[in-house]
């Protein structure tokens, strides 16, 4: 499998996860989206040197992954694989900010390293929150939630089309790339001269396909609106879910639990 195949396989797998049937899967997608958003805002609202205060937030992904029956290892790998920008930018912090602000067993730790650790921790938290939403909900249901949350319909509808044809087109792209690599003997990326007609043909085929899809839609009475039967309802459990997490995030935001806990323990041993 080449890179393209792996990526679309990945998306497909996330969708399979979303097909699960747990309490969290059944929850109204709006509740999950809003909670994830609150979580992310709470996490990023911490100051740049916050490290310990962020640790308790790990409870959110831990609970969601466990209750949703999602595979820890897979999600963790996904989080680790996708971090170039944050790390590249974050790594400058230890270089720029070298003042020692903490001593552990005689080793001085600079502010830069702490803020770098903070960036990495933020990264893990925010990324896993996003991945969890999609793995528990599925893309199309997220789209549905978006319409219900007031996102303009043309945008959501084309988003759904995009998702539908993403698999078809990555497949097509993969076949073209494979066909090319089977007939070349240098392992590297393709040359610009090959790349342009390949992409060009893919684009032409895409435009033709769009035309055929449009035709298929017209044949079934399409007149500019995409009708769908779906109902979403907010029950008590959705309200409880969002409120519960919101309260917890607020508490974790205001009280530095690890420090509290730590000073309790160290006091006890003193």
């Amino acid at each position: 499998m080449n890179n393209i195949g792996r990526n679309s396989f990945d998306i497909g797998y996330m969708d399979t996860l979303a097909g699960g049937d747990s309490y969290l899967h059944r929850l109204d997608p709006r509740a999950k989206l809003i909670t994830a958003f609150l979580f992310i805002v709470a996490v990023v609202s911490f100051g740049r040197y916050a490290v310990f205060a962020l640790i308790p937030f790990l409870v959110y992904p831990a609970v969601m992954i466990s209750l949703g029956g999602l595979p820890y290892g897979y999600l963790l790998k996904k989080v680790l694989v996708v971090s170039p920008f944050a790390i590249v930018i974050g790594i400058f912090n230890p270089l720029m900010d070298r003042e020692i602000v903490m001593q552990i067993g005689g080793i001085g730790i600079s502010g830069g390293w702490i803020s770098f650790a903070s960036i990495l921790l933020r990264f893990v938290l925010t990324v896993s929150a996003a991945l969890i939403v999609i793995a528990l909900t599925g893309f199309n249901t997220v789209c549905l939630a978006l319409t219900k949350l007031g996102v303009p319909r043309p945008f959501v509808v084309q988003l759904m089309f995009f998702y539908r044809y993403l698999f078809v087109l990555t497949d097509e792209a993969e076949r073209m790339v494979r066909a090319r690599s089977l007939r070349t003997f240098d392992a590297g990326a393709m040359r610009f001269k090959t790349f342009v007609p390949l992409i060009g043909h893919l684009l032409l085929r895409t435009l033709d396909r769009a035309e055929r899809i449009y035709l298929a839609m017209r044949c079934r009475g399409f007149d500019g609106r995409i009708p769908m039967i779906r109902s979403l309802r907010i029950h008590f459990r959705e309200v409880a879910f969002v409120t519960g997490w919101a309260v917890l995030f607020t508490v974790l935001r205001c009280y530095n639990i690890p420090l509290l806990l730590g000073s309790l323990v160290t006091e006890a041993f003193r």
Binding site: V157, Q158, F161, F162, E172, A173, L198, L202, I213, G224
Partner: peptide, 22 residues
Amino acid sequence: DRAVPLMGVLGAFIFAAQMINF
């Protein structure tokens, strides 16, 4: 009418094309 399906499919095209390196 054509706009919405065309947009969706072109989005998928861009997504696929972004994965092809040269």
